[in-house]
Amino acid sequence: MQKAIFYILLLLVMVIWGLNVVAIKIVVEAFSPVMITSMRIFTAFLVVMPILYLRKDFCKLTKEEGFLIFVAAVTGIFGHHFFLSVGLTKTTASNAGLILGLVPLSTSLLAMLLLGDRITLFKFLGIICGITGVSFVVLAGDSQIGFISVGDFYIFLAVITQAVSFIFIKKATKTVQSRLVTGYMQFIGALLLFIVSIRLEPSGFSTLKEGSMTAWIVFLASAVLATGLGHLIYNKAIHHLGAGETAIFINLSPFFALLGSAFFLGENIMITQVFGFFFIVVGVLLGTGALEQKYQLHKMKQYEYAANKK
């Protein structure tokens, strides 16, 4: 029963995360992108902080733990959200949602390169499918074969920076509670984004007065539901279901981003994006080892069944 509840919660989180790409697109076009992103991340931190306090998660960090969390914050919060916010001002929400679907595959690839994870046939095929999928998305943008927009490139950098952060998060959470890592990352990342926004967007504060009520409501929904509570639920699901089973749900996020961009922003969904979505999903399932684990488990059960029959 508990497993079914987490499945429902994960599905809800994927809907929220998919629509969050649309929400961020609306927000960064209504305000100065980096300034409003720093405020969005800090608002998420304010949501998480009372939970950390009530659960008594705060503890003294070692130098190594502090370093790992800082690097994770620089890449996963500052880098990822900087490129995401700026990129969404220069590309469509549908393209961004699909490219972001590469995060699990990119993380798996970096784990092979940096952590020495074994490269298998399944993972190799997954990488090929993932590259093929993103090629459909970015190389056929605006129906111009061979055209890669600056916005798509920024979103791709957002994928890489988040994938790098997951490597450091994985190391940090071996000794530090994942909720605490998330909270520290949000605080550090929001502070760095705010400092950069003052430099890059001198008139950033003035745009806050120009935003509509709708834009502010979308801002709060994105900060509280997607960035704050969404990550807490996802981390809790990892603890109960395991990282592999939980990661499979991420494949649904680009689908909801596509639907949301069409419904709320009126963006056209092209056939190349549909093909791209298909290859990216297959690539993630293969590249992250999700299908390989299922295949090996099936073989093991067949072997046990045959052995018992004898």
Results as ranks from 00 to 15, higher is better:
residue 218 V to T: 15
residue 219 F to K: 03
residue 220 L to R: 02
residue 220 L to C: 13
residue 220 L to F: 15
residue 221 A to S: 15
residue 221 A to E: 13
residue 222 S to L: 13
residue 222 S to Y: 10
residue 223 A to L: 05
residue 223 A to I: 08
residue 223 A to C: 04
residue 224 V to W: 07
residue 224 V to D: 12
residue 224 V to I: 15
residue 225 L to T: 09
residue 225 L to M: 15
residue 226 A to V: 11
residue 226 A to I: 11
residue 226 A to R: 10
residue 227 T to D: 08
residue 228 G to K: 02
residue 229 L to T: 08
residue 229 L to E: 03
residue 230 G to A: 07
residue 231 H to Q: 09
residue 231 H to P: 00
residue 231 H to S: 05
residue 231 H to T: 06
residue 231 H to K: 02
residue 232 L to P: 00
residue 233 I to F: 06
residue 234 Y to H: 06
residue 235 N to T: 01
residue 235 N to R: 01
residue 236 K to P: 01
residue 237 A to T: 07
residue 237 A to H: 08
residue 238 I to K: 04
residue 238 I to Y: 03
residue 239 H to W: 06
residue 240 H to P: 01
residue 240 H to A: 07
residue 241 L to G: 07
residue 243 A to H: 08
residue 244 G to R: 12
residue 244 G to K: 14
residue 244 G to D: 14
residue 244 G to H: 09
residue 245 E to Y: 11
residue 246 T to L: 05
residue 249 F to A: 13
residue 250 I to C: 05
residue 252 L to G: 14
residue 252 L to P: 07
residue 253 S to Q: 15
residue 256 F to N: 07
residue 259 L to K: 04
residue 259 L to F: 14
residue 259 L to P: 08
residue 260 G to H: 03
residue 261 S to C: 10
residue 262 A to H: 14
residue 263 F to L: 15
residue 264 F to V: 14
residue 264 F to E: 10
residue 265 L to I: 06
residue 265 L to S: 08
residue 265 L to P: 09
residue 265 L to N: 06
residue 266 G to F: 10
residue 266 G to E: 11
residue 267 E to F: 05
residue 267 E to Y: 07
residue 270 M to A: 13
residue 272 T to K: 12
residue 274 V to D: 04
residue 274 V to P: 01
residue 276 G to S: 13
residue 278 F to V: 11
residue 278 F to E: 00
residue 278 F to L: 07
residue 280 I to G: 00
residue 280 I to S: 00
residue 280 I to K: 00
residue 280 I to D: 00
residue 281 V to T: 14
residue 281 V to A: 14
residue 282 V to L: 14
residue 283 G to E: 04
residue 284 V to E: 03
residue 286 L to H: 01
